[in-house]
Nucleic acid binder design. Structure first.
Length: 802
RNA sequence: GCCGGUGUGAUGGAAUGGUAGACGUGAAGCACUCAAAAUGCUUUGCCCAUCGGGCGUGCCGGUUCGAGUCCGGCCACCGGCACCA
């Protein structure tokens, strides 16, 4: 009989659909294990061959855990709110909800085609009102706790489309759609105070089993720095507060720079003799996009404030104040003290504007370049700090500033609060109402969800408001507080909202009274193993950790962290080594591969093609190697075999024990490629010496997480009891993985000269005797004095001769 | 510029400081076949060669009995961040 993968895969998928062997049970005797993949965004293109890599990996893990006796939760859902769907809907004039329905159906069918052991009964959809009701509820809780606030922040504004653009929509400083200029503009937006959690988001990484590169990326992104805030008095009378990480260099501060957006500029306007020039500079800076501001960074620009200067608090000297766009309004206090001797940017600026450069840390040549080394320098020209190391000077000056009430130590983060408003239709409505009298009033919990109304036109508007702004019937609503006429918020949430808590909903996806029951959350969370893309580490992963911590603080979840373990997969590249993308036309569709080779082959291949954590190019011609492997297994296992079901043959006993150990260990270490190589070797052995029933049973049991359909089919054909996917993961006997006799490498002076065979665990003398008994090796040692012998047990002998 | 990562046969990739190249692809040969495909078996890092020997993991050095692996200094490529004071 031929290996008819199409029929076999359909058969088992139907059985799984009907008998639901992968449905998770809420409770029971077995220990729980929660395996999570990043749920897909159901785009119109369907699954591409990149999706199966992480999905198959986690499916293998989930299937192994079930065989190990765990109660496994391995859920799936759809992150369906978002811009691509909305744009597709606009282009094709189909309602986004309709588009979502079609796309999710297609994705689900594709996932089923690949035989994933998801618990489909728990499938969720972030655009389902029953779901986003709770996304809105969390937002309300955040508002209640002072974490959600409305603020005016700079956004990308297209001068022609008259609307706000996402950063991704700004390409080389111009609007992606119309090619016109994009400027920064202040706009009132809902914000989430993620910065209040910055310290905890860093600290709590320590206790988590995340791969190091993930932790590092999050830490760098949050960007903690320690320094001090220092007050400078000005001739205008106001205090100008700066943030610095080098308070030790205060004596070397020869000028100050404030950002063009700094609030004091407005106040100081009457005092400024060159107000026009400053205005022009401010306008120019505003006109520049972030992109230009950083690209043109090499050449420093700025304008000196004519009419206001500052006093250095330690020297008492009067120093000039500049505005320059190299100082960011959004970091620190939006103002800096400039120490050109010890900061590269300040040095450049000082050179350009011929400002004095004072050396306050000895060790370099400040006339040639800024000396920024903190470890070796000694303080000079710094009054009471002279002679101290940089570290000691930092401590002393900070104490001094605190003492004199001129400043204090301060920690800053690069992380900014999260801009949470989108002027788009296809997202969760932000459940807030604006009342002239009461201000922003939250929608009462009992009125949730605030349903996304049906609109005729969901295109963006000329005014930059959400398409919802035209829905007067929907907008106008009485104030929940005083009953006066009021208006709903028309902005929606960003696509990261629904995915920030979805793993909680899986615990209890149909709950109508809470985002999930306390019992279900206590039982299932935290997620035991979460795998996803590296590109989500600084967005989704961070956002969801933030939300989870908030939910922990208000007593909704029992742990401070949502995910115990996080790993990340590499991308599958096209055959040319480039990223797969529709525009390059190099995308591989999994359906084509499944049609030609079968789902089991595709699953094997995506796991076999390289190191799971690294990018790897696709190769259609290599896929057939995996198909051949399955064909060879089929050839061995479809016919009737001798032997007992639960006994290994003497010929294969060692190889089997080793394979059980290796495959299990490799799955845990994400080394799926070598796990499959081990199985391939085993099959090669079986072609040399025919296997017994017991041998084949183990092979199928180990294979079943990787290629579940064929394993199950052959299991049945052999008449083994039960199913391959529920059969206990086999145990190995460490003693039986060891050979009786080994080949020992023989080196002379560190160079490999030959090998000898000796019994395992032979004493050193026996090994040496074997070496001398070898004619060739003995000849090489003739007439030479043995100076030293190194023996590595069961591995190698190294003879050092004179 | 800063922070990561990577560099191994024709090729995708294996190798707790201990026999480099497992496993797969490709290629060559043999068997089966009228023939081809499929399948099975064999060979396949490079150089000289008869046994055998020499050289080999981006480059240069170091540590070590022994280095793809550890250390120092380069080079190249990929990714992220980028005037964060």
């Amino acid at each position: 009989m031929k290996y008819d993968f199409t029929a076999i895969e359909k058969k088992w998928q139907k059985i799984w659909e009907e008998t639901k062997p992968f449905a998770a049970k809420d409770g029971g005797d077995k220990p729980k294990y929660y395996v999570l993949i990043e749920f897909p965004y159901p785009s119109g293109d369907g699954l591409h061959v990149g999706h199966p890599r992480p999905y198959t990996a986690m499916d293998i893990l989930a299937r192994r855990r079930r065989k190990q006796g765990y109660n496994v939760l391995f859920p799936i859902g759809f992150d369906s709110f978002g811009l691509p769907t909305e744009n597709y809907a606009i282009k094709n004039k189909i309602h986004p909800a309709e588009v979502t329905k079609r796309n999710t159906a297609r994705f689900a069918a594709q996932c089923k085609m690949l035989g994933y052991s998801f618990d489909w009964d728990r499938a969720i959809d972030t655009s389902d009102p029953e779901y986003y009701k709770w996304t809105q509820w969390i937002f309300l809780k955040m508002f209640e706790n002072g974490l959600a606030y409305k603020a005016s922040v700079p956004v990308n504004w297209c001068t022609s489309c008259k609307c706000v653009l996402a950063n991704e929509e700004v390409v080389n400083g111009v609007c992606e759609r119309c090619g016109s200029e994009v400027v920064r503009r202040e706009k009132s937006q809902w914000m989430l105070a993620i910065t209040k959690y910055a310290q905890r988001l860093i600290d709590d990484l320590d206790g988590l089993d995340f791969t190091e590169r993930i932790k590092l990326l999050e830490k760098n992104w949050i960007g903690r720095s320690t320094g001090a805030e220092v007050d400078f008095t000005t001739t205008a009378g106001d205090t100008l507060r700066v943030y610095t990480t080098r308070p030790d260099t205060l004596f070397g501060a020869t000028y100050m720079v404030i950002s063009p957006e700094h609030a004091l500029l407005k106040k100081w306007e009457p005092l400024l003799k060159n107000a026009d020039e400053i205005h022009a500079y401010q306008l120019e800076a505003a006109r520049k996009s972030d992109f230009e501001r950083t690209e043109l960074a090499k050449d420093k620009t700025g304008v000196r404030l004519d009419g206001v200067s500052a006093i250095n608090p330690v020297t008492g000297g009067e120093i000039p104040v500049f505005i320059s766009d190299y100082v960011l309004a959004t970091y620190g206090t939006g103002a800096i003290m400039a120490v050109p001797g010890h900061d590269e940017r300040d040095w450049e600026f000082a050179k350009k504007f011929s400002l004095p450069i004072i050396e306050v840390v000895a060790g370099g040549d400040v006339e040639k370049e800024a000396f920024t080394d903190c470890d070796t320098g000694v303080m000079v020209n710094s009054g009471f700090l002279n002679g101290l190391s940089v570290a000691d000077a930092k401590t002393k000056i900070t104490e001094w500033l605190t003492d004199k009430n001129l400043g204090e130590s301060k920690v800053n983060f690069k992380l900014r609060d999260w801009v949470f408003s989108r002027q788009r239709y296809w997202g969760e409505p932000i459940p807030m109402i604006y009342c002239e009298k009461c201000g922003w009033v939250p929608v009462p919990e009992s009125d949730l969800p605030v349903l996304l109304p049906d609109v005729q036109n969901y295109e963006t508007t000329d005014t930059g408001d959400s398409p919802l702004a035209a829905m007067t019937d929907w907008i106008n609503t009485p104030c929940p507080h005083c009953g006066a006429p009021a208006k709903r918020e028309t902005d929606t949430m960003p696509n990261w909202a629904g995915s920030s808590w979805y793993y909680l909903r899986y615990a209890d996806p149909k709950n109508k009274d809470a985002l999930a029951s306390k019992k279900a959350i206590d039982y299932w969370t935290p997620v035991d193993w979460y795998n996803g893309g590296m590109e989500h580490v600084t967005l989704h992963l961070l956002y969801s950790r933030f939300w989870h911590k908030f939910l922990y603080d208000i007593g909704v979840v029992p742990t401070p962290e949502p995910y115990k373990k996080r790993t990340a997969h590499g991308m599958i590249l096209a055959e040319d080594g480039q990223k797969m993308s529709k525009s390059r036309g190099n995308v591989i569709n999994p359906n084509d591969i499944v049609d030609e080779f079968g789902a089991d082959t595709l699953r094997l291949y995506v796991m076999f093609l390289g190191d799971f954590e690294k990018d790897a190019p696709w190769s259609t011609s290599s896929v057939k190697g995996c198909k051949r492997f399955l064909d060879r297994i089929w050839g061995l296992a479809e016919k009737s075999l001798n032997g007992k079901d639960n006994q290994f043959s003497a010929a294969h006993e060692k190889a089997l024990h080793r394979a059980i150990k290796k495959v299990g260990g490799d799955i845990e270490a994400l080394k799926f490629n070598t796990a499959i190589a081990t199985l391939m070797s085993l099959v090669n052995d079986f072609y040399e010496t025919p296997p017994t029933r017991g041998d084949i049973k183990i092979l199928l049991s180990l294979l079943s997480p990787f290629a579940p359909h064929i394993a199950e089919e052959l299991w049945g054909l052999q008449g083994f009891s039960g199913h391959a996917d529920s059969d206990k993961w086999p145990d190995y006997d460490a003693a039986k993985t060891i050979d009786d006799e080994l080949e020992i490498a023989v080196q002379i002076g560190g160079k490999l000269k030959g090998t000898v065979r000796v019994p395992t665990d032979s004493p050193d003398e026996a090994v040496l005797a074997a070496v001398l008994a070898d004619e060739k090796l003995a000849r090489l040692t003739e007439n030479r004095e043995l100076v030293r012998t190194i023996v590595v047990k069961n591995k190698l002998v190294n003879l050092i001769l004179k």
